[in-house]
Design a protein around this nucleic acid. Sequence first.
RNA 1: GAAAGCAGGAGAGGUGAUUGCAAUUCCGGCUUAUUGCCAUAUGGCAAUAAGCCGGAAUUGAGGAAAGUCCGGGCUCCCUUAUGGCCAAGCUUGCUGGGUAACGCCCAGUGCGGGUGACCGUGAGGAUAGUGCCACAGAAAUACACCGCCGAUGACCUAAUUGAUCAAUCUCUUAGGCACAGGCAAGGGUGCAAAGGUGCGGUAAGAGCGCACCAGCAGUAUCGAGAGGUGCUGGCUAGGUAAACCCCGGCUGGGAGCAAGGCGAAGGAACAACGGCUGGCCAUAUGCCAUGUUCCAUUGCAAUGAGCCGCUAGAGGCUUUCGGUAACGAAUGUCCCAGAUAGAUGAUCACCCACCGUCUUUAUCUGAUGGUGAACAGAACCCGGCUUAUGACCUGCUUUCACCU
Length: 128
Amino acid sequence: MVLPKPMRLKGHRCFDHLHRSGVRYQGPSMVLKVAKANPKLIRSHKRDQNPTACKCAVAISNKVSKKAVVRNRLRRLFHQHLRLRLSSEPQRGNNWALISLKPNSSKKELNPLLEECDKLLREAGLVK
RNA sequence: GAAAGCAGGAGAGGUGAUUGCAAUUCCGGCUUAUUGCCAUAUGGCAAUAAGCCGGAAUUGAGGAAAGUCCGGGCUCCCUUAUGGCCAAGCUUGCUGGGUAACGCCCAGUGCGGGUGACCGUGAGGAUAGUGCCACAGAAAUACACCGCCGAUGACCUAAUUGAUCAAUCUCUUAGGCACAGGCAAGGGUGCAAAGGUGCGGUAAGAGCGCACCAGCAGUAUCGAGAGGUGCUGGCUAGGUAAACCCCGGCUGGGAGCAAGGCGAAGGAACAACGGCUGGCCAUAUGCCAUGUUCCAUUGCAAUGAGCCGCUAGAGGCUUUCGGUAACGAAUGUCCCAGAUAGAUGAUCACCCACCGUCUUUAUCUGAUGGUGAACAGAACCCGGCUUAUGACCUGCUUUCACCU
């Protein structure tokens, strides 16, 4: 369960752009960073693809859990949640978003985490 | 029946549905480019390629994918390495075999452990040499502290024999002393003191002799070999080689798929050259000129993006043959993950197993609720090793108990 390819972010330049110029929304167990899309950073010969999709990424570091199985499960659940949320909303377009989980998030239950994610998305204006 | 030992198997319990992700193939549509044909202010049709969208089918994590500890394949770099010698390195070290190779595997030998099935084993050389062995102890290639003995002595004491009235001399014995000396049995020290136990032997002892045992050498025999068994001989000297070292064996060195390679379109930044009827800005203004910017061409780089490497391989499975086995050979058959911020998830239904509650005296049945679990996620690919692993299944074997 992973985002379809048009919704994914690729390349480390895109992530640098997000880390430098993104607006941060802090939650107790995660950080949401949102930035305007910068299509120049994407590979050049595919620029003509659909620019209205909101590109997302989820970052889970080794500090969350040392086991790859745990990290994979969290990432899949977040991806499913994001896909349901963002595809049901009208296109907000031209935004890139990055959710990075803090190390304490592995101890929490899944549902509070997803609610927190919703709250942050609402603050950022990506979801009504 | 209980307790063990060994060897394996399989690893979200099964089936199905919905939704969702990735790869491949096929079909349809759209856009762009190129080519061809028809026609020609313009376009239409077909083919190919790329991209996007939609649909269908197939496939989609593990026994360890992990640790990255060994061994390779593959790739590039440095050197001249290809054969021989030397040097250097290697925790490489019983024998034989297997393998592409290995420090891995199989079969055996020796030693150790277990009643046993079985298990463990860093298993070359200490008479090639050089070292070291603290403390203790007399002594650690070496000895005499205590001790035992003492054939010797013009010594001392006592007893005794003979000569003698006696002194004295003499013989023998015992003890003491002295010391040339013998011993390594006993005590003590220590990991270790020149094989062990017993009998004989001796002044006392000692492989000095004998019997058995341990070790060494020689020899006969069995074995492919490590080694086994027997006989004979002399009597035999601790540990440490993960101290240097000796012997045998192996090895060009280094980096690792982020290795390494490609350039059709595009092209941020940089550089070069060119352009202007003067397009912009600056040098107050005008002209010239310079710089900047713009445009065109060319060149060049990369931890970005793209493509290749990238999964048909020391591949899996079946059968037969060879081999005790590891494994090998032949035949047939199959294609079985290739992602790159990283593809396998979520939900539901039925069945099955287990557990709880209700019904029932109890079992069955029925109703209802829960659980379906351990370790854990491919990242160039193989062969091993190590570590983690809940519950389960299969086969063989041993010991004990019981029955006949």
